[in-house]
Each structure stands twice: as C-alpha cells, then as structure tokens.
Nucleic acid binder design. Sequence first.
RNA 1: GGAGAAAUGACCGAGUGGUUGAAGGUGCACGCCUGGAAAGCGUGUGUACGGCUCAAACCGUACCGCGGGUUCGAAUCCCGCUUUCUCCGCCA
Length: 439
Amino acid sequence: MLDIQQLRTDLDNVARQLAKRGFVFPIDAFNALEAERKKIQTRTEELQAQRNAASKRIGQAKAEGGDVTAIMNQVAHLGDELKQAEAHLDRIKREMQAMLLEIPNLPHASVPDGKDETCNVQIRRWGEPRRFDFTVKDHVGLGEELGLLDFEAAAKLSGARFSLMKGGLARLHRALAQFMLDTHTQEHGYQETYVPYLVGRDSLRGTGQLPKFEQDLFAVSAGGADAAGIPEYHLIPTAEVPITNMVRDEIIPLQALPLKYVAHTPCFRSEAGSYGRDTRGLIRQHQFDKVELVHIVHPDDSYEALEQLVGHAERILQKLELPYRVMTLCTGDMGFSAAKTYDIEVWLPGQNAYREISSCSNCEAFQARRMQARFRNEQGKPALLHTLNGSGLAVGRTLVAVLENYQNADGGVAIPGVLRPYMNGLDQLRKSEQNASEL
RNA sequence: GGAGAAAUGACCGAGUGGUUGAAGGUGCACGCCUGGAAAGCGUGUGUACGGCUCAAACCGUACCGCGGGUUCGAAUCCCGCUUUCUCCGCCA
C-alpha cells in the first residue's frame, strides 16, 4: 500500500512512476473521492464535537440536580444527521481503502524502465555452462528413464501440474532443501522457522496477494467447498506470507533488527492464466517446495539487505556449481509489492536457456503499511519497517537444474559434492532398480 | 464438538452509564539530591486521522480484543464474532 499522504501531496509524480510499470492511476476518481472525504469528515467531526459538548453539559447538569430537558431537545436533532454522516464517511473510507489496496508499489529509482521481461537487465553471470559431448536430455526424460519421476501417477492422483518422485530422486529433493536450510542458518545467520501452510485473508492482504490476486490462490474451507462463501483459509503461495506476517500489528524494538528468517515449505499456486506455459516437467507446478528467506529491517538498511539477500541465494548455486545469471527486473516485470527485484536464473541444458530459480525483492514499506508492521525508531516513535523476501531457492527447480547439469551420457546423474552427506554418501543416481532401494 | 472463565495503555492492574485518554503501581525519560550510585522527591511519558501551518504549537475526532446495537452520552448495558485459559469428548 502506498502512503496516502504522498498521494495527496505528490499525486502526479506517483501516477507517472506507476505508469512505468503499466499501472494507470485513476487520478480523477481519487481526487473526487478525496474531496468528498474531506468534506464529509469535517462535517462528521463537527457534529460529533457538538454532541460531545452537549452530552457533557447534560452530565454536569444532572450531577447538580438541574433540569436537563432543554439541552436534550437541543441535541435531539443531531442524532439522525450524525448517523448519516458517519455512515457516509465510513463508505468513503472503505472505497478509498479498496482503491489503495489495488495500487502496486512504486519502483525504486534504480529500476530500469521497460514493459516486459525482455527489458530486464543482466547485472552479473557466474559459471560457464558445461559442454556436453552427447545429446542432453531434459529433466523429464532423465527422471522418467531413471524410473524415479512419475507424472502419470501424479496425474492419476491429482491431475495436471503435480508430480511424484521416488527413491533417490525424492531423497535428492529432500537433500536440497536440507542443504539450503543448513547453509542459511549456519552460514548466513537466518533463524529457521516452521510456519502454517494455511493462512487467513488478513495475512494475504498484508503481503499483497489479496484482494487483487485471489484467482492465483487455492482456497480451503473446513467441511468442504459447499460450506463457504468466503473461504476460511488459503494455501500459501509462498512462505513469504506466513513469515512476513509474523510482524503484522507488531512494534519491534530497534535493537531486535534486522530479523532474518528462513523456512522450507510447500507452495501452492493455481497458475491461472498460465495455460500452455511450461506444461512439461517440474518447472511450473501447483505444488512445489521452496526455501524462503525474509528480512525485516530498518528502512535505512533495506537496499543493503537486498544485496545480501541475493548473495545468500547465489551462494547456494555456487556451492552446487550451477551456472546462473542475476537480472534486475524492469519496471514492467516486477511483482505487485516490490520496489526492486533481482531474479536469479539458472542454466538449464535441457532448455538451452537460463530460467528463474529465485526472485529477491525489497518491498520497502509497502507490505509493512498494509500490515501495520512497525519498529520503535531512534526517537522512540513507531515507524514502518521495510520487508524483503527471496527464494533461497525454489527446490523443485533446483532439482531440475541438478538433473540436467549433472547428467551423464548413460542417463545417470552425478550428485553434487555438497549434497552427498545428505545422500548417505551416494555419488550418482543410476539407472538400476536397486538405486531406489539402496537408500 | 460440549460446558465455563477471561480479553483495559510498554507491563501489572482499577474501573457496571456522565467533564475517563482512562485511578494506582511498575517500567522508561528528564530534573533535584549525591563525590558517584542506590534510595528518596518532583515533572513527564499512547497511537491514528483530520483542520490550520513551511513547520511546530494549537484545535477537533476516533481508539479499553473485533463488529454491530441501545442511549443525549458506553471501557461500563445488549447481540454476534475472534482469541486465550480450564474441564469433558474426539484425535496424529
């Protein structure tokens, strides 16, 4: 949510900045609503003041045993008008709030202009894609030929965009998540958290998924779908939601900052509107695991924190020796809540392309304002925090990257060195039946 | 799922219709005192929104879990909800 004060005083500039990300600010509607708000609020408060003054006099008169009917008559007519004014003001405030909740964050000055992902800017590259002297397979071919990846079974159980892994592959998937958690907690100073996978609407509003992106979420109601108009819970689309909302309606003491949390969770996304995209394989699933990093920081420190955050995510790929590049997203490609976003894209030999494996964003005070997430500043006054989040990393996509980058001519897949301790020492996924049962 | 109890400021805690933003205490800040500290004494100590302002001061409004209602007036009365605790049932 943007600062209403800023909208009142600097509207044209705000509208111009939002236009860069393809958002058309309803200037006229806003101004009209704001003018009405001012008028009605002034009137309402005036009436309230009259009522309060009269009531006070009634109290005094009664205490002195005086006659009260004269004042009562004076104030009698106020009731209806006041009630009407209050209702009107309430309506306007709701309307204003609804408008505010639909407006995306302002892009930071350092974000490149552009309409879509073709305008993103590469800022660095790490590692060289390996050269293969055989025809590479993609992760689907590899996983299915190993007998460890079964999309048919997943489709039978749940439908499209679900996956089922077995044996060494399922173990590798778990190993990746463990490895990421261990690295972030032991080397990068994050506190591990275990969080709910079902969250309420307030939480989703806080981080910006609601009200605008309801169709991207899965809703859950106790007692089944028939029970509900408004669903009780939503499955988290990312651990960013539960983790960041830990500070909702809180005032964090200055010396507690920065807060750095990591969680490994499944994520659930409806992928509405992505029909036909990435239909093959593990890249785009309704359910996937992710290790998520969240920073809750002092506003002065948030851009430094963003650089650290990206570095922490990159560190995972470096340890796995997977080539990647870091992109600054342009204004037109950023998510709703972000002021600045870096995407990390990993090299996938099966697609002969770099594909997103992490997205790290500074949301500045955008989420904090929605959440009323504050800290007590140097003057002892509550002030809005800045929130950041980033994948560190998407586990499923990392698994894809390992399979494709570490494949051998015989269809086997080497286990990256850092993962072997998590794999009971196994150094290779082989095309043998035993493979699965050895573990 | 059933029965009961509770929810007040940073914290504890008083307050069953009338100058209550809210007694008292703790904590915190500042001052006095002291060689220094403690104790003691004094003063102060919420947030949000709006008006007027360059700004501050000032003024107004709202806020005692949340949402409604009754009333000239609600922390206080009524209704609904949420959360926490206790007991019973069920359960990984």
